[in-house]
Amino acid sequence: MPTSTRSSNASAPCRLDWRPSRALAGALALIGLLAAGAVLASELPSPMSWLLAVGAVLYGAWLARRELRTAPQRWVVETGAVSLDGTSLDAPSLQWRGPLAVLRYRDGAGRLRHRVWWPGSLDAAGRRELRLAWAVQTPTPDPRSMAP
């Protein structure tokens, strides 16, 4: 059929922005406050419990501040490659935990890193786009996997 249109199986790259989650920062600060309450409710001597409670609050606040100060990143998921701010990643793997998307990868120094997209930082349309792009990016299993 010379008049039929040609179709392409290549898909457009998925471009996502990762930014720090305010919900995660709030949860980290709340955990610090709850830890301080737990220490104060324990049977530790009073001076030690107050010292640990202040330390728990400060540590929770430090974790929340560190989360919020993390620089936003640009992710591109293409067929056969995943890149972060223009550099290709080694051994990326995406796992879904309900509405959370967890991407694990190795950086240039070989250290294991991860990024988490929370529902507040990735809307439903973005999650769908990431699922579809990742399904194209991962190789399909061997078609001869069943016994003859």
Score class of each variant (00 low, 15 high):
residue 1 M to D: 04
residue 2 P to A: 08
residue 3 T to N: 08
residue 4 S to D: 07
residue 5 T to P: 14
residue 5 T to V: 11
residue 5 T to G: 10
residue 6 R to L: 15
residue 6 R to C: 06
residue 8 S to L: 06
residue 8 S to V: 04
residue 9 N to I: 03
residue 9 N to Y: 04
residue 12 A to K: 02
residue 13 P to T: 03
residue 15 R to Y: 00
residue 15 R to S: 08
residue 16 L to W: 04
residue 20 P to C: 09
residue 22 R to T: 14
residue 24 L to H: 02
residue 25 A to R: 06
residue 25 A to C: 10
residue 27 A to N: 09
residue 27 A to I: 01
residue 28 L to D: 00
residue 29 A to D: 11
residue 30 L to E: 11
residue 31 I to W: 13
residue 31 I to G: 01
residue 32 G to V: 05
residue 33 L to K: 12
residue 33 L to C: 14
residue 33 L to N: 15
residue 34 L to A: 15
residue 37 G to Q: 05
residue 37 G to I: 03
residue 37 G to W: 05
residue 38 A to I: 08
residue 38 A to C: 09
residue 39 V to F: 10
residue 40 L to E: 05
residue 40 L to V: 12
residue 42 S to W: 01
residue 42 S to Y: 01
residue 43 E to Y: 00
residue 43 E to H: 13
residue 44 L to C: 08
residue 45 P to M: 10
residue 45 P to G: 04
residue 48 M to V: 15
residue 48 M to G: 09
residue 49 S to K: 12
residue 52 L to D: 08
residue 53 A to D: 02
residue 54 V to L: 15
residue 54 V to N: 01
residue 55 G to R: 03
residue 56 A to T: 06
residue 56 A to I: 06
residue 57 V to W: 07
residue 58 L to W: 14
residue 59 Y to S: 08
residue 59 Y to R: 07
residue 60 G to N: 03
residue 60 G to E: 09
residue 63 L to V: 01
residue 63 L to W: 11
residue 64 A to E: 02
residue 64 A to Y: 02
residue 65 R to H: 12
residue 65 R to C: 08
residue 67 E to D: 10
residue 68 L to T: 06
residue 68 L to Q: 13
residue 70 T to I: 07
residue 70 T to A: 15
residue 70 T to H: 09
residue 71 A to V: 11
residue 71 A to H: 10
residue 72 P to H: 00
residue 72 P to G: 00
residue 73 Q to I: 01
residue 73 Q to E: 12
residue 75 W to F: 15
residue 76 V to S: 14
residue 76 V to P: 10
residue 77 V to E: 06
residue 78 E to K: 10
residue 78 E to L: 14
residue 79 T to M: 09
residue 80 G to P: 03
residue 80 G to N: 13
residue 81 A to S: 14
residue 84 L to S: 09
residue 84 L to W: 06
residue 84 L to N: 04
residue 86 G to D: 12
residue 87 T to F: 03
residue 89 L to Y: 05
residue 91 A to T: 13
residue 92 P to M: 10
residue 95 Q to F: 06
residue 95 Q to E: 14
residue 95 Q to S: 13
residue 95 Q to K: 12
residue 97 R to I: 10
residue 98 G to D: 02
residue 98 G to Y: 00
residue 100 L to D: 03
residue 100 L to E: 10
residue 101 A to Y: 05
residue 101 A to K: 01
residue 104 R to Y: 06
residue 105 Y to L: 03
residue 106 R to V: 02
residue 106 R to I: 05
residue 106 R to H: 15
residue 107 D to A: 08
residue 109 A to L: 07
residue 110 G to H: 09
residue 111 R to W: 03
residue 112 L to D: 07
residue 113 R to S: 14
residue 113 R to L: 03
residue 114 H to F: 05
residue 114 H to N: 13
residue 115 R to C: 00
residue 118 W to S: 06
residue 119 P to H: 00
residue 120 G to E: 15
residue 121 S to K: 01
residue 121 S to A: 15
residue 122 L to R: 01
residue 122 L to M: 13
residue 123 D to M: 13
residue 129 E to M: 09
residue 129 E to G: 10
residue 131 R to Y: 00
residue 132 L to A: 14
residue 132 L to W: 02
residue 134 W to Y: 10
residue 134 W to A: 04
residue 134 W to F: 04
residue 135 A to P: 02
residue 136 V to M: 03
residue 137 Q to N: 14
residue 138 T to W: 11
residue 138 T to C: 07
residue 142 D to K: 00
residue 142 D to H: 02
residue 144 R to N: 11
residue 145 S to V: 05
residue 145 S to I: 07
residue 146 M to T: 07
residue 146 M to G: 02
residue 147 A to Q: 12
residue 148 P to T: 03
